[in-house]
Simulated scan of single mutants.
Amino acid sequence: MGAGGTPAAPGLILLPRQGSPRLLGRMLLEHLGLHELPSSVTSVEALLGAAGFRPRSADRSLWEREGRAVVAGEEALEDGARLLWTFPVRWDEESIRQQVRYLGLASHDLRGSLANIRSYAALLLNGRSPLEPKVKRGLEVILRNADRSLSFSQDFFDASRADLGALACEPERQSLLPLLDAAVERQRAAATAANVALVLDVDPQAGLPDVNVDGARIQHAVEAFILYHLARAEAGEVIHLRVRPAPPHVRVEVRRDGVPLSDEDASAVFQREERALREKKLEDPLRIALARQEVEAHGGGVGVEVDRTGSTLFLTLFLAPPAELGPPASMQV
Rank of each mutant, 00 (worst) to 15 (best):
C169A: 11
A182W: 04
R17M: 08
G258Y: 04
G112M: 10
S262R: 05
A268E: 11
L139T: 04
V41D: 07
G49F: 09
S151F: 01
S95A: 15
L131Q: 12
A115R: 15
A190N: 08
C169F: 02
N195M: 10
L227Y: 03
L277F: 09
Q98D: 13
A291Y: 11
L34I: 10
T312P: 00
S61R: 15
D265E: 15
A146D: 03
Q271F: 08
P321M: 10
D109H: 13
Q205G: 02
R173E: 08
P178Q: 09
Q99G: 13
Q187L: 14
R65G: 00
A69M: 05
Q18E: 12
V250D: 04
G19R: 01
R148P: 00
Q219G: 15
H229T: 00
F53P: 10
E94V: 12
E185Q: 15
L198H: 06
L114F: 09
P133D: 14
S153F: 08
Y120G: 00
T312F: 07
R255A: 11
H35L: 07
L12I: 05
P16A: 06
I13W: 07
D59L: 09
F87N: 10
F314M: 00
L47N: 11
Q332M: 13
R65C: 03
L110F: 05
E324D: 08
E30W: 04
L114Q: 12
V100Y: 00
G52E: 13
L62E: 11
A122I: 06
R292V: 05
K134L: 14
L114S: 02
L15C: 05
R173P: 01
L164H: 00
P38A: 04
A231Y: 02
N145I: 01
E283H: 12
I96L: 15
L208G: 05
I288V: 15
W85S: 11
A182I: 02
E75L: 10
Q293M: 07
Q18Y: 07
T309V: 09
V44L: 12
A72L: 06
A246H: 03
H298S: 08
A168N: 03
A297H: 01
V304W: 07
R272T: 11
A197K: 08
R90Q: 14
D155H: 06
P10M: 05
L200F: 05
L167E: 00
I142R: 06
P204T: 07
L32T: 03
L282T: 09
T86M: 11
G80V: 13
L37Y: 09
V44W: 10
D158Y: 00
L227D: 10
A166Q: 14
A231F: 01
L83R: 13
D92E: 15
R118P: 01
A216E: 14
A115G: 13
E185N: 05
